[in-house]
């Protein structure tokens, strides 16, 4: 059976076009033994330009922003990264962009003007990590209650695990009656039907 998929755009071609179009921007390819998607690092101030180009260029046509996620690499500086996954429907291609964010000034320009879907995706990243997106129309908490203090997904925020009371960690609990006759089932007197 013939393969019905349209032939995709290869990510190397995308990187090449980006470098041609923005020769002065510092792109860096993420290398690693198990980095399975083609990923490019770029500086935060060029983000909106690059995204607009990726969306509008007819040969690339990355019209859909699939996901925005924050990552916290705590002992490292820059501490945070924001990862953008892009999808091109006409060309059947995916691409990943990453922006490094420092802890002292966690700000990234918003891409809501390029893809309106970034509205809630960036709010979620703000909610979890405290990374502010400058220019965002409505930056407030989305998943956690509004009065919550702290950024839960940062590595120095606790999980919030509460000790469950078992028999081995509650030595002062009320012990059950040793008289076993009390455990015998009573006949149920009250039946509804």
């Amino acid at each position: 059976m013939a393969d019905p998929r349209p032939q995709g755009l290869s990510p190397e071609v995308v990187e090449q076009r980006l470098r041609e179009r923005f020769p002065d921007a510092e792109f860096r390819r993420q290398m690693g033994e198990a980095v399975r998607d083609h990923t490019l690092y770029l500086p935060a101030d060029r983000l909106v330009e690059v995204c607009t180009f990726l969306r509008d260029d007819p040969e690339l046509a990355f019209t859909m922003l699939v996901s925005v996620s924050g990552v916290d690499y705590l002992p490292r500086d820059p501490r945070f990264e924001v990862v953008y996954h892009l999808l091109s429907i006409p060309k059947n291609a995916r691409f990943v962009l990453k922006v490094e964010v420092r802890e002292e000034d966690p700000k990234v320009p918003t891409v809501t003007g390029v893809w309106p879907t970034a509205n809630w995706l960036e709010r979620e990243t703000y909610d979890f990590y405290g990374i502010a997106f400058t220019g965002h129309p409505d930056l407030q908490r989305i998943l956690l209650p509004e009065e919550w203090v702290g950024w839960p997904l940062r590595k120095d925020s606790p999980l919030g695990y509460q000790e469950v009371a078992f028999t081995h960690n509650t030595p002062d609990r009320e012990k059950p009656d040793p008289d076993l006759k009390k455990l015998a089932p009573k006949k149920v007197k009250y039946r509804a039907h």
């Binding site: 198990a34 399975r36 990923t39």
Partner: peptide
């Protein structure tokens, strides 16, 4: 013990594109 890296894989769930992004 997975290798150091990251991967994103999406499937067509009944609701749409469901993707998991793992950084290991």
């Amino acid at each position: 013990f997975p290798p150091v890296g990251e991967a994103y894989q999406a499937i067509e769930a009944p609701k749409g594109e469901l993707g998991f992004y793992f950084i290991s």
